[in-house]
């Protein structure tokens, strides 16, 4: 990371700490904001958060690694999370999964070369009555068919 980037990151995190407070209980909210903006939480950001909350960097890393929606490695601009739990599975998840893989040319767990998409599975997203469902960034898409899924992805390209 360049010095200017580091400074910008420090400033950003200082603002978040200002907003949420410098207590440990603010940790998740701060990390979620960084994740939302950068799609991951860079190494330097983790150390800055640790410094400003007066905890150890490994504790920040440990917390991030625990939660499925927080990442320590860069992700695509759009993070696709397709529900893999049984209700969606029974409603045709596999066909949707295959069509997305084919469309993006990546497998689950991978990020497209242009960094536009990361494809992941999620556990039950609470759309069991209207599956298959997926969450892209913060939005939920449901009653998916292979065709509908591709349409949605095209809308994001």
């Amino acid at each position: 990371m360049l010095v200017t980037e580091k400074n910008a990151m420090t400033e950003e995190i200082e603002q978040l700490v200002e907003k949420y407070g410098s207590k440990r209980s603010s940790l998740l909210s701060i990390l979620q904001d960084i994740q939302r903006k950068h799609k991951y939480i860079p190494d330097f950001a983790q150390q800055e958060v640790a410094r400003l909350l007066d905890i150890h960097p490994v504790e920040v890393f440990s917390v991030i690694s625990f939660y499925a929606f927080l990442n320590t490695k860069p992700k695509g601009k759009n993070i696709i999370r397709l529900c893999q739990t049984i209700s969606c599975d029974m409603q045709g998840k596999s066909a949707v999964a295959k069509s997305i893989e084919r469309e993006l040319g990546i497998k689950f767990g991978e990020t497209s070369k242009d960094n536009k998409f990361t494809l992941e599975y999620a556990n039950c997203v609470g759309m069991c009555d209207q599956g298959p469902a997926m969450i892209i960034n913060e939005r939920v898409y449901y009653k998916l068919t292979p065709e509908k899924a591709i349409e949605i992805l095209n809308g994001l390209k």
Partner: peptide
């Protein structure tokens, strides 16, 4: 973390 307050090891994943 608690006894030595060094903070190198933690549970991950």
């Amino acid at each position: 973390i608690d006894l030595q307050e060094v903070g190198v090891l933690e549970a991950v994943d």
